Simulated scan of single mutants.
Amino acid sequence: MNKSMMMGAMIGGAAVLSFGAVAGYQTLKGPDYAEVLSVTAAHKEVKTPEQQCEQVQVVQKAPVKDEHRVAGTVIGGLVGGLLGNQVGGGNGKKLATAAGVAGGAYAGNQMQKNLQNKDTVTRTEQRCKTVTRTREELVGYDVRYRLDGKEATVRMDLPPTSDRIPVKDGQLELSAVTPAKPQA
């Protein structure tokens, strides 16, 4: 083998080795992108306690000024005594007057009691209760993707605008993804 042939073989071998190494590196390196399969908005339930108040009409028994019903008893006794005094004569008149006083006093007392029980006042009262409001809050987007034949999911703040996610050293490069504007 002559010298130029030897030199050509060496150069050719080096070229084959270089090309093979580059091709092998590309094979080992893996894909440049992961394929986006689906994008789903992720929500969480947020519960907030709130005070809910309303005005309510309340009917109550009016405050009693004459708790022992003295006025009804006295007035009833006087009226009963006057009516009893109109009946009979002599000792019968005295007995009728005494019975009229006693009966009138009792009747006056009961009449005042009935009037007091029916005497009511209406006032407006504020009544409050705590209610829990529930709402959905967007927390991000679950992006399902395929990389090297395997499927996985990653949560992103915003959805990607394309159907590919860049990959570097076998890892997703989420900072290189151009996010879409959030959907309202």
Score class of each variant (00 low, 15 high):
Gln86Phe: 14
Lys129Glu: 10
Leu158Trp: 03
Glu136Ser: 10
Thr124Glu: 06
Gln126Arg: 08
Lys118Gly: 12
Gly77Ser: 05
Ser175Pro: 03
Pro160Leu: 09
Gly77Arg: 08
Thr73Phe: 10
Ala152Val: 02
Gly81Thr: 02
Thr134Pro: 07
Asp148Thr: 06
Arg135Trp: 06
Asp157Tyr: 06
Val101Arg: 02
Lys47Ser: 07
Thr153Leu: 07
Asn91Asp: 09
Lys65Asp: 05
Gly77Leu: 01
Val58Tyr: 00
Gly80Leu: 00
Asp148Ala: 13
Leu83Lys: 12
Glu54Tyr: 14
Ser162Met: 13
Val121Cys: 00
Ala152Phe: 13
Gly90Met: 02
Gly149Ala: 05
Leu82Asp: 06
Ala71Arg: 14
Glu173Leu: 08
Ala99Asp: 01
Ala152Glu: 10
Ile165Gln: 01
Gln112Ile: 07
Leu158Gln: 08
Val101His: 04
Lys93Thr: 00
Arg127Asp: 06
Val56Arg: 09
Met111Ala: 15
Lys61Leu: 10
Val58Gln: 13
Leu158Tyr: 08
Tyr141Phe: 06
Leu95Lys: 09
Tyr141Glu: 04
Asn91His: 08
Gly140Trp: 01
Asp163Asn: 11
Gln116Trp: 06
Pro49Gly: 06
Asp163Met: 12
Glu50Ile: 12
Ala99Thr: 00
Val59Arg: 15
Asn91Leu: 04
Lys44Tyr: 07
Gly140Phe: 00
Asp157Met: 12
Gln51Asp: 13
Ala71Val: 09
Thr122Ile: 03
Val79Glu: 03
Glu136Gln: 12
Glu137Asn: 06
Ala98Trp: 02
Gly80Pro: 02
Thr132Pro: 05
Thr48Tyr: 08
Pro63Val: 13
Val56Tyr: 02
Pro160Met: 05
Gly89Asn: 05
Gly140Val: 08
Cys128His: 07
Val70Gly: 00
Val121Pro: 04
Lys129Val: 01
Gln112Arg: 04
Ala176Tyr: 00
Val139Lys: 05
Gly84Cys: 04
Thr132Asp: 12
Glu125Ala: 14
Lys94Ser: 08
His43Ser: 15
Thr153Glu: 12
Gln60Lys: 08
Cys53Leu: 03
Cys128Gly: 12
His43Ile: 14
Asp119Arg: 10
Glu151Asp: 06
Ala105Glu: 03
Ile75Ala: 07
Gly140Ile: 09
Leu158Cys: 11
Thr122Phe: 00
Leu172Cys: 12
Val79Asp: 01
Asp163Gln: 11
Thr130Tyr: 02
Ala107Trp: 00
Leu147His: 09
Met156Leu: 14
Gln171His: 09
Ile165Arg: 00
Lys61His: 09
Gly76Asp: 07
Val87Tyr: 02
Gly72Val: 05
Glu50Lys: 11
Gln55Tyr: 11
Leu138Gln: 14
Ala98Leu: 10
Leu172Pro: 09
Arg69Pro: 08
Gln112Glu: 12
Thr124Met: 14
Arg146Lys: 14
Val101Phe: 07
Leu147Ser: 06
Gly149Asn: 15
Val46Asp: 07
Leu147Asp: 11
Thr153Asn: 04
Asp157Lys: 13
Asp142Glu: 09
Ala62Glu: 15
Arg123Pro: 01
Glu137Ile: 01
Ala98His: 01
Arg69Ala: 10
Gln52Ala: 04
Val58His: 00
Leu158Gly: 05
Gly72Phe: 07
Pro160Gly: 04
Thr161Met: 14
Lys168Arg: 14
Leu174Trp: 02
Glu67Ser: 11
Leu83Ser: 07
Gln110Thr: 15
Thr122Asn: 15
Glu50Tyr: 13
Gly92Val: 00
Val101Cys: 12
